[in-house]
Amino acid sequence: MTTTPAKDFMAEGDSAQALTLEQVSDAGRPDRWWEVVWSSRKARVGVVIVSVYVIVAVFAPLVAPHDPLDSTFTPLAGASGDNWLGTTTDGRDIASQLIYGSRISLLVGLFGGLLATIISLVIGMVSGYAEGTIVDDILSFVTNVALVIPALPLIITLVAYSEVRGVWLIVFVIAITSWAGGARAKRAQIITLRNRDFVTAAKFSGESTTRIIFREIMPNMSSLVAAAFVGAATGAIGAEAGLAVLGLGDSQSVSWGTMLYQANAQGAITQGLWLWVFVPGLVLAILITGMSFINFGVDLLSNPHLREDA
């Protein structure tokens, strides 16, 4: 739909400033969410950083010079043309480990974040919409309990029992231990939205409860959900690294956490192999920085008064 300023006046004469009966504000169609996010410079930087990581992870076999588990190189070699960042004590290529490691982090971030967001969404929405009932009392209590239990010790305990520690087990455990904060925020949000007049108005339009929750209320929560997802994914990535550092990582593959664990266990520091220690933590920090930057853009979405007075 296009409106020219001249047409925007309901002119009762030929002057452009004739008696206006009604006029619509000169704002065009509202900004799309991606336009809002993209309007923040930090968010743009974040999107670029995360995209680079995704590309590297997807095309790891093409990017990496070697197989990360190939231990046929000279141990403790320094950086060279063949081993860009040197080798480990048991003769593996650090650069290749680093590149393949991105896969685990992104995988855990994506699915751990997704699963945690879904759990928090379901519990938060049900609890918020049922506010004041026994259902809400129970769900709120569960949420509050889950919130006070320290996450990392619980994750460690849960993972420690299993013999096989695949990446999916880690994703699952991280998700079921880290949804509580999100659920509480969503409950609070839905309570404020639920009491808004447009929800009552929807009831008077003959809408069903499911339609009210998913078609009327949900679209107003998208920014909160997006922010929660980015936050949960960031947390999951950190938690995976923490687990791996304790030797509880996926034993079948390489992640940045397991690299740090190996580096510490093999005494990389005492032997002066600082690259082995320094690089995995650094790439992890850059990824998390990228994700925090994206969240700055997402915050613009949930902070409408930053855009409303346009």
Partner: peptide, 24 residues
Amino acid sequence: QMVFQDPYSSINPAKRLGYVLARP
């Protein structure tokens, strides 16, 4: 039917007016 006090909160900010009016 109802008309509310605050016209700022009685129209769903995520929906176009056409949708709002079409639902009933």
